[in-house]
Write a protein that binds this DNA or RNA. Structure first.
Lengths: 344, 344
DNA sequence: TTTATTTACGTAAACGTTTACGTAAATCTG
DNA sequence: CAGATTTACGTAAACGTTTACGTAAATAAA
């Protein structure tokens, strides 16, 4: 069984390749009877158009790229889920790239996408300072949409969450529950999201008449192994009574650090984390979270991209802000058992 | 700035396109000096080869496809992570498809991949009975490797875990910790993995002189929402003292059901789950798991695929079995606090 | 030195589509 | 019913590479 291409299909039908091609794409130039014959034979011969040939000629790849720091992460995997769903609805294919926070790698990925491999890019950028970003070179060539981890120094379409407000709310929540010394564990602090979260924290402290103490704001490591120790050091040296984990990966280190030091959550230390963990509700104790609408962000970003690809009207450099949700659970001292509602 | 292609590059260098093409691929037919000139100019002009044209001519797409039931799942996202890592090392691109356990969709994906879009496929199959599978049509055309959720009725390369043994061990573990009535929550029970897990459970009961009672083995729903109720019904009607969650998604429903019914874990009910949840160690109580080497499975499957693509020697229809790990924690009645070792 | 071989490149075809252009027949227009 | 228009298709070029084949110059073999 040789590969069946459009020519063999045409030969079998006593038609020209052009006619077959048009029939398959349901062109108005082709008679209904002929279309039916072509479809029938295509099915019978198991014809699948060669995408390379098609892309080459039509300059459409029917493929989009998603670039994220990590795949094995609740937020990003949920976002990719949303993206894939929309892509599926448009019969598009999805390429995945993970940068592991490496800017060089990110640039290399983008570069490799600039010659027709994809029709558009959705990206959540790597949190690294070093290395030039080449987004300016991309935008004239390819639609590119930022989600969650957006790039500041460029006008583009960006999908974010209300990080400042969420962080402000989180901090206030700790204050309201009695915290006086609230530590902040930094992550992705070179991205706008990271900066906004820090700002929200600082402003909430100020509005609560708590003096900002920079010894309570620590940087965390890229290597996950070291983070429990970093948190332990913080707990021992500064004795905070509240912890804000600015990214999900820092929640577990907090729990481990408290466990190892014999500190009770929430009695000794209250913890709140930015997190999309599905298990937040059944942690020990259950974890109060700021939860981002990951799936929806993916859907939204992809939706806008496809509007662009389908030449629909799209507001040029919009920044769309979706709201994160504060889900109060036991780790911040909520006394009641979480209701089923709060499980999600 | 028009798109720069190989012809413009060649014109700029006073060379033929053929020479430029060969120089870029480091052919031995090209002189060192010329190669250097070409490379230099390519960099300067920001030349990126058009993949469609290249694929069309060379019949190599430098792309592989990964088909999984869900992306937003610890096991699969970790496996994809491993796959992506290996693909990266080989300068390959990765297409992602999720089937949501829909066999029709899975078939459609595979069909769409048969005309040169990818050089190979890694798949963890959908757990559905209905619908014919067309894997036989794929194998002569494209290398395809099954991982975790493998297809029984075909000779192919398969990467699995020791599901029978793991399930046997899990069941024995519950017995040893005092369980007499062990319920089994089925999932993916149409795949070999699912069947093996059931077999391991039944055999372990038999070897423990416990009568198998099919009322204790319940099917779970595709809709996650209904599962807590299914588990509640089971707990109320059968009063089991042990629960085996055969897939990760069933662990949370068990916790919620116990919480809602006021049953203490592990005092009233002991729970063990197949799971790759990173948070297993800090659940309330911490969850004893059978943990699959997800990342390694991804790496292994991808590694073999690239051996095939690089025409290395590969044992034709091998089934490679990686070992899952029993991680004992509090939910099965371990009295001691888990050590840092057991956190992973 | 003559012939054979190697080196370094050019020419042109091919990969499988899509589409601009052309055209005969069918249909419409007045 | 003559001319204009529409319908339904065919011809051939084009998309941007890779590669089989050819060849002149350089080198090696004799």
């Amino acid at each position: 069984m040789d590969k069946v291409n459009i020519k063999k299909l045409a030969a079998e039908l006593n038609l020209s390749a052009a006619t077959v091609s048009r029939a398959l794409r349901d062109s108005h130039e082709i008679g209904a009877a002929t279309k039916a014959r072509v479809m029938e034979m295509a099915r019978k011969m198991n014809y699948v158009p060669n995408p390379s040939a098609s892309n080459l000629r039509s300059h459409k790849s029917k493929t989009i790229a998603v670039i994220v720091p990590e795949i094995a992460n609740s937020f990003f995997s949920q976002a990719i889920n949303g993206i894939e769903e929309i892509a599926r609805a448009h019969n598009y294919h999805v390429l995945i790239y993970q940068t592991h926070e490496n800017v060089e790698l990110e640039n290399a990925f983008i570069r490799s996408l600039l010659s027709g491999r994809v029709d558009g890019i959705l990206i959540s950028i790597a949190s690294g300072l070093n290395g030039e970003r080449n987004f300016k070179d991309v935008l004239p060539v390819l639609p590119l949409i930022f989600f969650d981890r957006v790039y500041e120094d460029i006008e583009a379409i960006k999908i974010t969450t209300n990080d400042y407000q969420s962080s402000y709310t989180a901090t206030k929540h700790l204050v309201e529950n009695g915290c006086k010394k609230i530590a902040y564990l930094k992550g992705i602090d070179h991205t706008p999201a990271g900066k906004n979260r820090i700002a929200g924290y600082i402003d909430a402290l100020r509005d609560s008449d708590i003096l900002f103490d920079d010894r309570l704001m620590i940087a965390t490591g890229d290597e996950q192994q070291e983070n429990p120790d970093l948190v332990k050091n913080l707990l021992l040296s500064q004795k905070p009574d509240g912890l804000i984990a600015s990214i999900e990966d820092l929640a577990l280190p907090c729990y481990y650090a408290c466990r190892d030091l014999g500190l009770k959550i929430p009695e000794d230390v209250k913890i709140i984390s930015f997190s999309n963990l599905k298990t937040a509700g059944i942690l020990n104790p259950s974890l109060t979270t700021i939860t981002q609408p990951a799936f929806e962000m993916g859907r939204t970003a992809a939706g806008i991209l496809f509007k662009i690809l389908n030449r629909k009207e799209v507001e040029p450099n919009q920044t769309l802000v979706l709201d994160s949700e504060l889900v109060v659970r036991e780790s911040t001292g909520s006394l009641t058992q979480p209701s089923p509602k709060e499980r999600a």
